[in-house]
Design a protein around this nucleic acid. Structure first.
Length: 686
DNA sequence: GCAAGGTC
């Protein structure tokens, strides 16, 4: 139903009404439509901030919205520890939130004549805080109610409106406490770090620590350390090729797996001598790959990274812009389900009108005979469905935007399509007591991959083979492979780790991860994440003095507190009191060492020379040694792994071993550096 | 200036 728009002055004439406060404009609109049966009138404040009003014949109702948090925590104190803060309008805390001011002004104005306030923000602790702060500062909490709904459907909105509840005080307390705890921990430890640096260098830089960012940093640091300390161990393996039909293919050694090089050589010898393998088992097996569920934000981010190499933050930014242009639904969702009320056919018809999609849509309609049932995933989100295209025609998209939009449209279509069929061929063959394997696969029926063609299985011709046939062995070689180092993190890998450990939220993970890069704790090289010297120093400092903030357990603890507050087991003040005490104690223990921390940070920033320099890098050497902690550990690693090497190569000397490690790309950086250092010293001593 | 959490 078309909605008439009115200017501000129109609604200004109402003199008393119930003010319904939503978390965001889109929700306000849905609420207004549902509660008024589509009869709500839309008004605009300052020509851009929308709100709605309607009447049930007795009373007037005005629906307006926040834009997320309109209030945030602020302090005027500069030092630390800092325990004094207050709630202030968000743009006073964060200059980037200036756009929120006009929403605030409208709510301020509307609040003056409201007789009842309804907090209709999302039903979670943040929503409770968002609505409450508005009512507390602009309205009157004594005349306020809470509307609790878990989806924005007409039925749910109407029934929650019929069953208004009192303000959910415990939930509000829990939400406020979450803000305060994050603030106390984050601001105080961040300042502790910055103070140390300033003390030694006289300079200010932005350093930070937090409940979400710090465990994430530690995770990446630990991985990077393991990589830099990695010592590859030789493992014997066999390269075997055979001729099937007229194709030369790779064969896999199934058994026996050689444990030493002599063993590998004898297996190779046997394969060469016999020269043919007899096929004893052949299986052609069809596998059906179900269509993927529609995108949630995490899946979109990981697919955009896989297919286009986009960082999760970049993908999110693009998706948010597409949402604001009304091209796609709300992207900050965890859901893999599409609402059954959505008119899929209508959307697809509209998509057919967009350049490049007509044939795809026609094929989908033919294939499904118009029976459109999406594949649903298991993940849910109380507030939003999975991401889908709205069907609105894009006008001017950048190349980036087009790629993300295209991914979303194709994924949406794929969701309605049929399973893909993949044929797997697995053959087992024997040479004496040696078992070899051969496998291949081909795409038999494209199904959903026709719409979303990002799988690596191609349509190829599978060889026709039977049991009892012989395969000529064309090549046998003994190869030395080496145990690989742990994989370097990628940006998407970090976000997935955060997701798996349940820290941060859909909306914040990518952003918080990026702050680790803006702080220069992490950097990327060719898409791989590495840790800077500063990153290692921060991780070390946090682990030593503020270890609580380096673990995901702090988030678990917070969750427990929030629950307790909601259940009335603990009060917000009790929780905060405990936090303040803990922080005070930690800071007391930290202060006597602050100079040392400052020195370490200054050295890692390259603005201070260490007194006892590590012979290899610029870090401070450990007392009584000429190496830093990391190179010392690398040296110890080098020593202990020598025995492992001798198991594989019994006659290798220590010096040969060290010289070999120094040249191995597979070896960790610190290990290589130590090995190189030792090698140079040998040469000098000759 | 620092957090994490909302949303344009």
């Amino acid at each position: 139903m078309p909605v008439k728009q009115y200017s501000w002055s129109m609604c200004d004439k109402l003199y008393s009404y119930t003010l319904i406060i939503a978390e965001k404009p889109k929700a306000a609109r849905r609420i207004a439509e549902a509660l008024s049966n589509g009869r709500a009138r839309k008004c605009l404040y300052k020509r851009e901030v929308p709100y709605w009003y309607f009447t049930d014949g007795y009373n007037y109702y005005v629906v307006a919205s926040a834009v997320g948090h309109l209030f945030g925590l602020k302090t005027n104190e500069h030092g630390f520890p800092v325990f004094n803060y207050y709630w202030a309008p968000i743009w006073e805390v964060d200059a980037k939130a200036y756009y929120a001011k006009k929403y605030y002004e409208l709510l301020e104005k509307l609040s003056k004549k409201a007789v009842l306030y309804i907090n209709a923000c999302d039903y979670d602790i943040e929503g409770s805080v968002i609505g409450y702060m508005i009512i507390r500062f602009l309205g009157d909490p004594r005349r306020a109610k809470r509307m609790k709904y878990s989806s924005l459907t007409n039925e749910e909105l109407r029934s929650s409106f019929r069953r208004l509840e009192p303000l959910d005080k415990p939930m509000i307390e829990a939400g406020m406490c979450r803000h305060e705890l994050d603030w106390l921990w984050g601001i105080n430890i961040s300042r502790a770090l910055m103070r140390a640096y300033k003390l030694v260098t006289g300079k200010r830089i932005s350093l930070s620590a937090g409940r979400v960012q710090s465990p994430t940093l530690i995770e990446v640091v630990n991985r990077e350390k393991a990589r830099r300390l990695h010592i590859p161990v030789p493992v014997p393996s066999l390269v075997v090729q055979g001729k099937i039909g007229d194709q030369v293919v790779s064969l896999e050694l199934i058994s026996p797996k050689p444990k030493s090089f002599p063993e590998a050589k004898s297996i190779a010898e046997k394969l060469r001598t016999v020269g043919v393998a007899r096929i004893i088992d052949v299986k052609y097996k069809d596998e059906y790959i179900q269509p993927p569920p529609p995108f949630n934000l995490g899946d979109l981010q990981s697919e955009a990274a896989r297919i286009y190499g986009y960082s999760p933050a970049r993908t999110q930014r693009i998706a948010e812009q597409l949402y604001l242009d009304a091209l796609i639904s709300y992207p900050r969702t965890n859901s893999q389900k599409l609402p059954p009320t959505l008119n899929y056919k209508e959307i697809l018809k509209k998509i057919a009108g967009i350049q490049g999609y007509r044939l795809l849509v026609e094929k989908l309609f033919t294939e499904t005979s118009g029976y459109l049932k999406p594949r649903q995933g298991v993940k849910e989100d109380p507030a939003h469905p999975a991401i889908y295209p709205t069907g609105v025609k894009p006008t001017k998209l950048s190349a980036d935007q087009w790629k993300i939009y295209d991914l979303i449209v194709r994924r949406f279509m794929a969701t309605f399509s049929k399973p893909a069929r993949i044929r797997n061929l697995k053959a087992v063959m024997i040479v004496d007591d040696i078992k070899l394997g051969f496998s291949a696969k081909t795409l038999m029926y494209a199904g959903w991959t026709y719409y979303y063609p990002y799988i690596d299985v191609k349509t190829v011709k599978l060889p026709v083979i039977r049991s009892g046939e012989y395969v000529k062995i064309t090549r046998v070689a003994v190869r030395t492979s080496y145990t690989p180092p742990p994989k370097a993190y990628t940006k998407i890998g970090i976000v997935k780790w955060m997701e798996a450990n349940n820290i941060g939220t859909e909306a914040t993970r990518a952003r918080i991860m990026e702050t680790l890069f803006t702080r220069k704790y992490l950097e990327t090289r060719g898409g791989k994440v590495t840790v800077t010297d500063l990153g290692f120093s921060i991780a070390e400092t946090l682990a030593k003095y503020f270890s609580k903030i380096t673990s995901v357990e702090l988030t678990r603890k917070f969750e427990e507190y929030m629950n307790d507050i909601r259940m009335g087991v603990r009060s917000r003040e009790q929780v905060l009191d405990e936090a303040r005490k803990t922080l005070l104690k930690l800071i007391d223990e930290y202060m006597p060492n602050i100079h040392n921390v400052g020195v370490m940070l200054a050295i890692s920033m390259g603005v201070l020379k260490p007194q006892n320099k590590c012979s290899i890098c610029n870090r401070e050497a450990v007392d009584g040694s000429n190496l830093c902690v990391y190179h010392k550990e690398a040296l110890e690693n080098l020593k202990s792994m020598y025995n492992e090497w001798r198991k594989a190569i019994p006659d290798i000397t220590w010096r040969q071993y060290v010289e070999k490690i120094a040249k191995m790309k597979n070896a960790g950086l610190w290990v290589r550096e130590v090995a190189e250092y030792l090698t140079l010293n040998y040469q000098r001593s000759v």
